[in-house]
C-alpha cells in the first residue's frame, strides 16, 4: 500500500470502504460527449470511472485526453487506462508525465489486446513494455522520481497505478503467479476481468492467498443481448452464463422499447443481485462495474450492497 494517497479512489480503498468503479468508453469520434453524459449519470454512484484505451484494439479517442475532459466537465474521478500495445517506453513515460500535468490521479497499466484483433490490424504492435514493467516504471517515476534508464524526473507525478487480473484465466497458476509479480513490483490496486461464476472467483482467491492489495471484481451487466454475446464470443477468459444469455436473447422479441429496457434491467438486477450478495463474503475490496453505455443499471445494483 502506498505511503501517500493522491486520489479519492485510493483514499476509499485505504480506508477499507467498499468501492464501486464504473467504465467509460471514448469512441472513434472527434468528441467525448457520450462518455461525458454517461459520467454525469454516475457522479455520486461510483468513486471513479475507468476510461478505456483502445479497447479490443479498436483505435479511439486518446484515453488521457478523454479522462481529462471527463474529469473537468463532470467532476468524476477517472482511472486512465494505458496500454503497452501502441506505445514504446518513451511514449508511455511521456503519457504518464502528461497525466500528472493534467491532474489525473489513477492509472490502470495494461498490456492490451494484440493490434491484429482490432480495426487496424496492419498496425505495428509495440509491446516494448508489458503490464508488469509498466507498473514498475510508474512506481519508479512516482516514488523515486526516476525513469527506467535512471534519469531524474523533475517534480515527479503524483498518481497511483493499478493492474488487471484474470480470475477466469485458462491457466490459473500462471495467471496468479503473474499477479503476484505485479504485486511485488508495487501495483496499488487490482481490477479483475469480468467474472460471472462464484466458483471461478473462489478458486482465484484461494490460489492467490492473502494479499495486501485491494481487488475490485469486474462485473458486466449487459445493456443488450448483443453486448453480452460479444463478450461471450470475443473476450478471452470470460464465459457468459448460458441462462443469463438466453433470457437476454428473449428480450429481442419485445417490440415496445420501454418495456424491453425494463425487462433487460430486471434480468440484470436479478442475476447480479445474487452475485453481489456473494461478493460481500469474499476478500473483494469492491466492484468494478463495466456497464459501458448502461449507466442506469448502476443505481439499482448498488442498492444491493447497502
Amino acid at each position: 500500500m502506498p505511503g501517500e494517497v493522491y486520489s479519492q479512489l485510493m483514499k476509499e480503498l485505504v480506508e477499507g470502504k467498499y468501492v464501486f468503479t464504473g467504465e467509460l468508453e471514448p469512441e472513434k469520434a472527434g468528441d467525448v460527449k457520450e462518455p461525458i453524459e454517461a459520467a454525469r449519470e454516475l457522479v455520486g454512484l461510483v468513486t471513479a470511472c475507468n476510461v478505456t484505451d483502445n479497447p479490443q484494439s479498436f483505435a479511439y479517442v486518446n484515453s488521457l485526453a478523454a479522462a481529462y475532459k471527463i474529469e473537468k466537465e463532470t467532476g468524476m474521478e477517472c482511472v486512465y487506462q494505458l496500454r503497452c500495445a501502441d506505445r514504446n517506453r518513451m511514449a508511455l513515460l511521456s503519457d504518464v508525465l502528461g497525466a500528472g500535468v493534467l491532474g489525473i490521479k489513477n492509472i490502470l497499466a495494461l498490456a492490451g489486446d494484440h493490434v491484429s484483433l482490432g480495426d487496424t490490424p496492419d498496425a505495428k504492435p509495440v509491446f516494448d513494455l508489458d503490464s508488469t514493467t509498466l507498473i514498475y516504471m510508474i512506481r519508479k517515476m512516482v516514488d523515486e522520481g526516476k525513469d527506467l534508464a535512471g534519469n531524474d524526473i523533475h517534480n515527479p507525478p503524483k498518481l497511483h497505478v493499478g493492474g488487471a487480473a484474470a480470475p477466469g484465466a485458462a491457466h490459473l497458476k500462471a495467471e496468479v503467479a503473474k499477479v503476484k509479480r505485479k504485486i511485488k513490483v508495487g501495483v496499488e490496486y487490482l481490477q479483475t476481468q469480468v467474472v460471472y461464476y462464484p466458483e471461478i472467483l473462489d478458486k482465484f482467491f484461494k490460489e492467490l492467498g492473502k494479499v495486501d492489495v485491494p481487488i475490485l471484481v469486474g462485473i458486466f451487466p449487459a445493456k443488450s443481448f448483443g453486448a453480452a454475446d460479444f463478450f461471450d464470443k470475443y473476450v478471452a477468459g470470460v464465459d457468459v452464463p448460458p441462462d443469463y444469455l438466453k433470457s437476454l436473447e428473449a428480450t429481442k422479441e419485445i417490440k415496445d422499447k420501454e418495456k424491453k429496457k425494463q425487462e433487460i434491467d430486471r434480468i440484470n438486477v436479478e442475476y447480479f443481485t445474487s452475485f453481489l450478495e456473494y461478493l460481500k463474503g469474499t476478500p473483494a475490496a469492491g466492484c468494478h462495474m463495466m456497464a459501458v453505455g448502461y449507466p442506469r443499471i448502476i443505481a439499482p445494483l448498488k442498492k444491493v450492497m447497502e
Partner: peptide, 14 residues
Amino acid sequence: GKGLMNGPCGGVRV
C-alpha cells in the same frame, strides 16, 4: 505473440 517479457497476458485461451 506480443513479445512480452513478463507474461502471460490476460488473453490466454482455453
